[in-house]
């Protein structure tokens, strides 16, 4: 179902990039943000990276031919960009207008969930490759192949990372329940 919707979106993108791109932001933006949020543990970093990823994606699409856009697997491709940006922390924002948020009561703009801090603590205990693989698989919902593509790691390694990551999370959470009881 989701796949069909993505196919339609990619086709629409290939014929009308300008008109369709806001739908990409709407559809993919939240998974991108919350995935990055759980990987980085920081609202501002996740916000910056989400924005930057989508802007870079748009710029790249502007230079792509129709067929190349049609062949894109949109979400893994966005994650390839996001993970690269996260590594390099490139900034080129000085030529852009920056949004003025009209409603900005201090500290309220962070949309963190109730148990967000607990998840950051648990995920932070995982080695980076396991954390990335677990978040992409189970928070974002990418397939194993798609994660392999986005991270540039072999399928087997991705599977191992997810398996070990989940195992470690279970251990951590068991220890939490044990501590709570004690």
């Amino acid at each position: 179902m989701e796949d069909h919707m993505d196919d339609d979106l990619v086709r629409a993108l290939a014929t009308d990039l300008y008109g369709t791109f806001p739908r990409v932001v709407e559809r993919m933006g939240r998974r991108l943000y919350w995935g990055l949020r759980r990987m980085s543990g920081d609202h501002h970093e996740a916000e910056d990276l989400t924005q930057e990823t989508l802007i870079r994606a748009y710029q790249a699409l502007c230079g792509y031919q129709h067929d190349r856009i049609c062949e894109l697997k949109l979400e893994p491709w966005l994650w390839t960009i996001a993970l690269n940006l996260g590594r390099n922390h490139l900034r080129s924002k000085s030529r852009r207008p920056t949004l003025v948020k009209l409603t900005e009561p201090q500290g309220v703009e962070d949309p963190e969930m109730v148990d967000g801090a607990a998840w950051d603590r648990r995920l932070n205990a995982l080695p980076p490759t396991q954390r990335t693989a677990v978040v992409l698989r189970h928070v974002v919902g990418l397939g194993i192949d798609e994660i392999a593509e986005a991270t540039g790691r072999p399928v087997g390694t991705v599977k191992t990372d997810i398996h070990r990551g989940l195992g470690r999370l279970r251990t951590i959470m068991e220890a939490e329940t044990y501590d709570a009881r004690a």
């Binding site: 300008y18 806001p22 932001v25 916000e47 989508l54 802007i55 748009y58 279970r170 959470m173």
Partner: peptide, 27 residues
């Protein structure tokens, strides 16, 4: 299950991001 809990960690897109993207892309 752990998998279900992880899947529930996606909330709404925070305010300002889609606007920031619109400004950054020239839309």
């Amino acid at each position: 299950t752990l998998e279900r809990e992880l899947a529930a960690l996606v909330g709404d897109l925070p305010e300002g991001i889609s606007e920031g993207v619109a400004l950054g892309t020239g839309l």
